[in-house]
């Protein structure tokens, strides 16, 4: 079973992602801020990381830089609002696979996750 790490501080968004992706058959683990996310990345490996771009303590971009340094092969999908175009661009420059803007459709998310995982394997 593929393992997905979600780094997001809005509990509702976490819940939604968790529900949908668990139903799709993945193992889902969560972190509520950048620091926790970094710790969890150090402890284990994941097949996909979904992260928000606006996190407390560490910015989404800093987090992506960290992931790319330590787990360069793991695909990343970023969550953001549509106002953050420049940050999304920066994230793409760092090598993220895909992005989803809020409000998001869980079905669309499902497809993008599937696509990202397939593109790697």
């Amino acid at each position: 079973m593929k393992r997905i790490l979600i780094i997001e501080d809005n509990p509702m968004v976490v819940k939604s992602l968790q529900f949908k992706l668990t139903k799709d058959g993945y193992t889902v683990l969560t972190a509520t801020d950048g620091r926790e996310g970094v710790k969890m990345l150090e402890d284990q490996e994941y097949d996909l990381i979904i992260t928000d771009l606006m996190l407390p303590f560490i910015s989404g971009v800093q987090l992506i830089e960290h992931i790319k340094k330590n787990r360069a092969d793991t695909p990343i999908i970023v969550l953001s609002t549509s106002k953050q175009e420049d940050i999304i661009l920066e994230a793409f420059n760092l090598g993220v696979q895909d992005f989803i803007t809020k409000p998001f459709s869980p079905n669309e998310l499902s497809l993008r996750v599937k696509r990202s995982l397939e593109s790697v394997s």
């Binding site: 809005n10 509702m12 968004v13 939604s16 809020k102 409000p103 998001f104 459709s105 869980p106 079905n107 669309e108």
Partner: peptide, 9 residues
């Protein structure tokens, strides 16, 4: 939920 999701959800 309503602010962050769209569509059927």
């Amino acid at each position: 939920f309503a602010e962050n999701l769209k569509g059927e959800s």
